[in-house]
Design a protein around this nucleic acid. Structure first.
Length: 555
RNA sequence: GGCUCGUUGGUGAAAUGGUUAACACAUUGCCCUCUCAAGGCAACAUUCAUGGGUUCAAAUCCCAUACGAGUCACCA
């Protein structure tokens, strides 16, 4: 019996060969330096910040070179499939506007290099596996899980290298006849790659981020097709898919770098050129409990998952910028010089990526985000805020819709100036700093944060005098402020800060203490944006109402 | 244990053998000021994990040690 006959026995219905597929998926017709990249997540978990980095870099590389960015669903692990994970991936790519050029979703396929879902490519993989069996570079292996455990135990105990290789690869030299017999007997088997590498032989691999790395050759007979569902393992799917889909640059997490010797040999077995690799560093995190640095964890770190940023309401560009800042620290400089350019025009340099892991810094994200939000127009901010609220807080959404004009006016305070306020790092942080602008919110227990002047009688005296004799909706800011000064002096407060600082004992307080009283009665807070603007929005009538509420509520 | 990579301040980091180790975030202080935010001005690594070596000169090159990370599945 020949290997060919064994291959036919295992794959009786597979008639196509790798060369057939070679013709079916010809080289892409693209400009010379155009990069073909892919985002290839597996739906075994929800998209996290590390995936996001990979997606953004892939997108960047493809778009800036006039290439193609496609999405491939790596669903070969059915056991760990997570409901909703695929949908979430599409949602995130759309949400962040890093949509793939080619993909397959909800029955719709876009692109000529599909299927883009691995479970639908079974036939293709089988053709490649079959070919490998025919040429004697793959074989059925009948080792049971418990036998493999035993081997590993033995290897561990005797300090040998772990894995199925050399004499441990019990079935690599079995005759096709014997293998065929076992198969006919219904014995379970996986297909293993028949390595002919030598562990003592080294080769140099060049990674675009990590540089040149010397590896020992692979000599492990790794499974390339599983027995349970006849789907390929990651390594084999990577070879077949990235070759056939004509991927030029593979961006993937650093955890894959140790598989390079295997991938190197796999590509060599078919005579295919390897794509270029960019192994990204891991995103790490300092563990709050014991201070150690560890891989960011979906379970422990809410910010690991992409839900987090959406729920908090970070602007999408802020998140992308934060991710790129980690990826290439010179991104920041580029961004300050090119504030309005789309992020994908950034000349991403794999070389400049740190080979070691980086801690994702939420403070940095907040800073980037504050800058973005501060540069939006008030109405843009309002729209973004409302969109966020509609998804995450209906109560706020109602208020925003009912008070659109006032909300925009409030958001516009100290905004249209050279250096606008940076109050908000995300949309969810707006409401806690603006709820007092909505009368409906004033029916709860109020916590007035008065400072130096907190005597109820004195406060009422100041407010009544202020509202009856001083405040006028029609005043300009300067007029208002001049009148405040006059009232200040009249009631025993220092209108001039310098004079107050010289002799604080001569006064009940300063103009700062005086305006704080007004501010707190109107907003309950001692820290707010410009008081004059807030009063302009409220109008005198509502100010009087708030004084009355104060009279009832303050102890 | 094998293989691979890494170690510059609280964080991200620059520097590719040559004056006082960029920059950004965070933190702290001062100024400005009706509060806050913003802005302005400062401070913050006598030192680049440790120990040796090469060199006129090292964070940068070499060696060793320590520590950290990734990986070693019919998971990706």
């Amino acid at each position: 019996m020949t290997n060919k006959e064994l291959a036919d026995l295992i794959f009786p219905n597979i008639t196509k060969t790798p060369s057939d597929y070679e013709l079916e998926y010809p080289a892409r017709n693209l400009p010379e330096n155009a990069k073909v990249t892919r985002f290839a997540p597996s739906p075994t978990g929800f998209m996290h910040i590390g995936n996001m980095m990979s997606a953004v870099i892939n997108y960047c590389l493809a778009k800036s070179s006039g290439g193609v960015f496609f999405l491939r669903n790596e669903d070969t692990d059915q056991a760990r499939f997570v409901e909703g994970a695929t949908e979430f991936i599409h949602h995130i790519l759309n949400y962040y506007k890093i949509s793939p050029d080619e993909y397959e979703f909800n029955g719709e396929t876009v692109g000529n290099y599909g299927p883009y879902i691995q479970s639908e490519r079974k036939e293709i993989y089988h053709a490649f596996v079959k070919y490998l069996i025919e040429i004697g570079r793959a074989y059925p292996c009948f080792l049971t899980p418990s036998e493999i455990d035993e081997i590993r135990e033995y290897q561990t105990k005797s300090k040998k290298r772990i894995g199925i290789y050399g004499k441990y690869a019990k079935y690599r030299d079995m005759t096709p006849e014997d293998a065929a017999q076992k198969i006919k007997n219904g014995e379970k088997f996986v297909i293993r790659f028949k390595s002919n590498g030598n562990f003592n032989q080294k080769f140099i691999f060049e990674d675009l981020t990590q540089g040149k790395i010397e590896f020992p050759e692979n000599d492990l007979d790794v499974p390339i097709m599983k027995s349970s569902d006849l789907l390929p393992t990651y390594h084999f799917a990577h070879l077949v898919d990235d070759h056939l889909m004509r991927t030029t640059h593979v961006v993937r997490g650093g955890e894959w770098i140790s598989s390079i010797p295997l991938h190197y040999e796999l590509f060599k077995a078919f005579g295919y050129k390897m794509p270029k690799y960019i192994h990204t560093s891991l995103i790490l995190k300092k563990d709050e409990e014991n201070g150690t640095i560890r891989k960011i964890s979906k379970r422990k770190d809410p910010e690991a998952l992409m839900f987090y940023y959406e729920e908090k309401g970070y602007p999408i560009l802020a998140v992308i910028d934060a991710v790129l800042t980690i990826a290439n620290s010179n991104f920041e400089e580029w961004r300050t010089n090119n504030p309005d350019k789309p992020f994908y025009e950034f000349p991403f340099s794999p070389k400049k990526m740190s080979p070691s892991g980086a801690l994702f810094d939420l403070d940095k994200l907040d800073n980037i985000s504050k800058n973005y939000i501060s540069k939006m127009s008030a109405s843009t901010l309002y729209n973004e805020y409302l969109t966020w609220a509609k998804n995450y807080d209906e109560h706020i959404a109602k208020l925003l819709e009912n008070h659109k004009e006032d909300t925009i006016k409030f958001l516009n305070i100290e905004r249209e100036i050279k250096k606008p306020r940076k109050d908000y790092e995300n949309y969810s942080s707006i409401f806690p700093k603006s709820w007092y602008m909505y009368d409906e919110e004033w029916d709860k227990d109020l916590n007035y944060k008065f400072g130096k002047i907190n005597n109820k009688e004195e406060i009422i005296k100041i407010m009544e005098e202020y509202l009856t004799t001083c405040y006028d909706d029609k005043d300009t800011q300067d007029e208002w402020f001049n009148k405040i000064k006059v009232l200040c002096d009249k009631l025993g407060y220092a209108s001039d800060m310098k004079k107050y600082k010289e002799n604080p004992d001569n006064y009940k307080g300063s103009i700062a203490d005086f305006t704080t009283v007004i501010r707190v009665v109107l907003t309950t807070y001692d820290m707010t944006p410009n008081l004059y603007d807030i009063m302009q929005i409220l109008g005198k009538e509502r100010m009087v109402k708030r004084l009355n509420i104060f009279k009832e509520q303050y102890k």
